[in-house]
Simulated scan of single mutants.
Amino acid sequence: MPYSRCGYREAFDAALADLLTRHTTLHGPAASPSSLLPLVPIALAALAYRTLGWAPAARTDYLPHALVTGFETRGPRVAGFGRNRRPDAVAALGAGPLVVERPACERAVHREIEDMYEEHLREAFTPVGQEPLAVWRLGSVMGDQERLFKWRAGNPAGVTDAQLATLRLASQMGAALFRIALADPGTEAEVTIGGRNLRYPAERKDAAGAHNWEKATAFALITGVREDLVPLVLTGPAFARPDGSASSAYREALHAYLKGGDPEPAVQRALEQAEKAKDWGFAMPPAVLLSQLVEGDEESFNLALADALEAHRDYYQVADRVDEPDTSVDLDILALACHARRRGWAIRVESPYLPQPLLRAAEPF
């Protein structure tokens, strides 16, 4: 169990604050130069930061950033930021792959569920009378395929042909949603999904919203189908409507990176948003992992990858989260790992969360 869950970090922060308060009270406003650097609090803060990744909760000049962090660049995005900045993790990465285990999460997909999802597919692809095909159904069946993939990803058999077919279908559906959104209002958009040529009325509604954009982009990066990525780059998470979610900055940063140009400001906003949300009680997208991809630092990307997977594992071991489809795999993390592999980077993290057949298939565009 992580230290912070046991209350150790809170106790440490309180004790450190008490030390600083007593130091301030003792020396008062007429402090001598020798009292401006309280060695014991600095040493304890540095030890906590460099071994556990705990940044001091207290913001004070008594704890100089350079001394606490070992002269890191100020700001959250630095090489190897996070728990795997520990020397032992860096050494392990140099000696061989970092291994991130996954608790058993095998799920049986009932035949009734598969039949229901097949029926949803038929409804999404079959017009009723003179009515046009419903765009909203595409977003719904993409969610069905996402759940199928995640349930099956928990099985020890690895990635099967059925899972690959599910990924390709979901990727095509996501791309279709945003091709439809790109079409001129009042016209029809022709899309190809699973070998079917289909026509949908052009619209920019909830189906082309930020949540579906993030999922569709993850599927396109995992499958590596460039044609599926094109409409997502041309639109973006806020194309249909503003994104007011806690994930908005990450989505903007990912879009900025995929478009090219300078994604640095957007990435910084994503890191700041993730920092604010860390105690909100829900999982956030892997902003630090994306930042290392943007930075172009392969080693730090691998360290951040292990961090992200460990954080995902910790989150989904709590209460009834263990029964959710997301337990077996995080699409955003997997997508960035596959994309990094296509950049020619070695993925030096081994884990059931990162199905090897998908990584091996991730060849450069």
Rank of each mutant, 00 (worst) to 15 (best):
P156F: 08
E114V: 04
P285V: 06
E264Q: 14
R22L: 15
L289V: 02
L232T: 04
V349L: 10
H211I: 12
C6A: 15
S248G: 09
V159D: 00
L232P: 04
A95D: 15
A176T: 08
A335I: 07
A124H: 02
T327G: 08
Y3R: 12
R343C: 11
R199W: 02
A48S: 08
L44E: 04
M1R: 12
R50N: 07
L331M: 14
A218F: 05
A45T: 07
A92G: 15
A277G: 12
E264D: 14
L182F: 14
K215T: 12
S35V: 11
G154K: 07
L354T: 07
L305Q: 00
P237L: 06
I222L: 08
M142F: 07
E188H: 13
A283Y: 15
L305I: 04
G70N: 07
P64T: 11
R137M: 09
L169F: 00
E203R: 12
N197V: 14
T126H: 07
A170W: 01
T187F: 07
L169Y: 02
L331C: 09
Y200L: 03
A306H: 05
Q317D: 15
W151E: 01
C6M: 14
P201V: 07
P2T: 13
V225M: 08
Y200E: 09
F12C: 03
Y62L: 15
K259E: 12
L293C: 02
A246C: 10
C338F: 05
R122D: 10
E252G: 14
R251M: 10
R342N: 08
Q356H: 13
N197P: 09
A176G: 06
V78M: 07
G195R: 06
A183K: 05
F178C: 10
V191I: 12
L16D: 00
D228L: 03
A283W: 14
E119W: 00
Y200T: 04
A266M: 06
A30L: 13
L334G: 01
L354P: 02
R137L: 09
H339N: 05
R204M: 11
M142I: 03
P132E: 00
T192C: 11
W151S: 00
A157N: 10
H65I: 10
A48E: 02
G82C: 01
P263R: 04
L303I: 01
Q130R: 15
E101M: 05
Y62H: 12
A218K: 05
R9E: 11
D88G: 15
A362E: 09
L93S: 08
D243M: 06
K150D: 10
S34I: 13
M284G: 03
Q317K: 05
Y62F: 15
L229D: 02
A308H: 08
A311F: 08
E272V: 11
G344Y: 01
S32P: 09
A202V: 02
R251C: 05
R107V: 02
A270E: 05
A274K: 00
A181H: 05
E324W: 15
P103M: 04
V68W: 04
A66Q: 14
A319Q: 11
E214D: 13
Q317T: 14
A181R: 01
R241P: 03
L331H: 08
